[in-house]
Amino acid sequence: MKRITLITTGIVAALAVGCATQRVQRASIVDFLYPNKERPVETATIPTLSLPMDVGIVFVPEKTPYQESALTEKEKIALMERVGAQFKAYPFIRSVNPIPTQYLRPGGGFPNLEEVGTMFGVDVIVVLSYDQAQFTDQHQLAALSYWTLVGAYVVPAERNTTHTMIDAAVYHLPSHKMLFRAPGISRVQRNSTPVDLVAALREDEHQGFTKASDDLTISLKQQLDVFREKARKAPDEYKVVAKTGYDLKAVGELDGVTLMLLAVLAGATCLGFRNQHSCGQQGGK
């Protein structure tokens, strides 16, 4: 009797502790740009932004080419188009090109980005990377129902939490300088039964990316506005020039000679007024 009690207590204790699992998927921008853990070289060059800009958007490839990706190519293109729409709204952006991930090598770094930049004719590139972590732990008491087998089908005692971050880093290719970055963050939390666990995690994975991309578009717009103001007000940080055949800002401005001519005309007109009035007064008398 004492032995049975001991075994039961042990099982209950083991269940109470429960088990937790963790799953991480990532495509890291640091792994891609600096694959050999080399230290980025700081150069004191001022990036020359030729406006209107041609912008490319890429997704950092996964570290190993055959690693299962959290996002399909179709989903990546859809996200790149959403990001691209934010850029297209600005007059200083001429074109936005989503570039398929197949054009990039894992750990290709800036040489790879420059190749792609030349290929697609872009001078600024948006590098999208992601990091998603999923945690599953069990509700300690509800998990006891799993011993009934039916409980494993009907009791949602698996607590799943999915944290997703999509990061958009905008680089000026000729100078390798990061112009700005914008993050998109999401957290999805819900329960599932052990039987539905895999499907639920996959669904959370998609929901996490959708919410993070929504967040990304908002923060990207904010960062674009901040960058535009910064580029306008800090000429020592960014040099802005017009591409051949483009006039960024045209103004109607009158010079001193025109104003002088106008002053002569105004003088003559005033003289005419005076004569007219004096003639009128004389006529009246």
Binding site: P52, F92, Y246, D247, L248, K249, A250, G252, E253, L254
Partner: peptide, 11 residues
């Protein structure tokens, strides 16, 4: 002037 992106001025 299709290349002009922005224009301003009363001149």
């Amino acid at each position: 002037a299709p290349t002009v992106v922005q224009y301003g001025g009363l001149s």
